[in-house]
């Protein structure tokens, strides 16, 4: 490891340690040292909890403390931390998958057909102007409180992001590359499969990374508004009890879920786009 890399890692660890220390003890210290008016409210554990409390909540929600045993605890709570995480992760994944698959398909079709693009253009622009979150209550009304409404919400958010990028990508395909393929005997379908799709893939992937976080946002918002299970539901329940540390647990788990999904998409991207210079290293 080169020296500069060590320095960077050391700085990162120092910042992490500083944040944790201030979060844990900052409020008590400032209360002891400063006049009451100058004590920063933002450090109040009532609002932001503190690392030790979050850790305890994590152990309790995750059935990892010793009272009563793991299996019984998991059985007794159908929105325990692990099940909630699993549900949220699963719904995010399916919403992302359906959303990006349909976005890619629609983008390729409209991107290659001027006629369809012009017919559907205004509708797509109009529909895209609706803030997606405004549709969530409607989606829940239609699909119920279960998983389906969360997948549908994620789909709504993901579809347009991926659609617009794929559409642009399909239009930006080099005409001479298409002509070259045709001159070598490629049919319309083979041109689509061997030239348009690989060429648009870079554009598609540019949208998949944000799309995966959007899918997670869609699912969580769906869970806020109406759900039986999931991490969003966990947060809403904790809010009702004014329990900041439990909210923090759910937020940290979401962070890990988000990272996990991003890593999966990124590794897929660097394999499929290995012909591009910025992914050369990962070949």
């Amino acid at each position: 490891m080169p020296k500069s890399r060590i320095v960077i890692v050391l700085w990162q660890l120092a910042i992490l340690a500083a944040v944790l220390v201030i979060w844990q003890w900052g409020f008590d210290w400032s209360k002891a040292l400063l006049p009451k008016a100058y004590v920063p409210k933002i450090l109040d554990p009532y609002f932001v909890a503190k690392p030790s409390l979050i850790w305890q909540s994590f152990l309790r929600l995750g059935c990892l403390d010793d009272s009563g045993g793991f299996a019984a605890c998991i059985k007794g709570n159908d929105n325990n931390l692990w099940l909630a995480t699993l549900i949220t992760l699963k719904n995010t994944w399916w919403g992302f998958l359906f959303g990006s698959a349909s976005g890619i398909a629609a983008g390729l079709i409209l991107g290659r057909s001027d006629f369809l693009a012009r017919v559907f253009g205004p509708y797509i622009v109009a529909f895209n102007s609706i803030p997606r979150i405004a549709l969530v209550p409607l989606v829940i009304l239609i699909f119920g409180l279960g998983d389906l409404s969360k997948i549908a919400t994620a789909w709504l958010v993901v579809f347009f992001v991926v659609f617009f990028n794929t559409f642009e990508g399909a239009r930006a395909v080099d005409r001479d590359q298409i002509a070259a393929a045709r001159l070598m005997g490629a049919s319309e379908f083979i041109v689509l499969r061997t030239v348009v799709v690989p060429s648009a893939l870079a554009w598609v992937f540019a949208s998949l990374l944000p799309a995966v976080s959007f899918a997670l946002i869609g699912v969580i918002v769906g869970e806020f508004i109406g759900a039986e299970r999931g991490l969003g539901k966990l947060i809403i329940e904790a809010e009702a009890r004014a329990n900041a540390s439990e909210m923090m647990v759910a937020i940290f788990i979401m962070m890990f879920v988000g990272i996990l999904l991003a890593v999966v998409v990124r590794s897929l991207q660097s394999y499929l786009l290995r012909w591009q210079p910025q992914f050369e290293r990962s070949m």
Binding site: D174, A181, G185, T194, V195, S199, L201, L273, Q276
Partner: peptide, 23 residues
């Protein structure tokens, strides 16, 4: 072509074999 119309996502081997592959 005058312009470079190779498929950048295909290796040299896959570019040269393209016409045979789609046939």
């Amino acid at each position: 072509f005058q312009r470079d119309t190779l498929f950048p996502w295909r290796t040299v081997e896959q570019n040269i074999g393209y016409g045979l592959e789609i046939a």
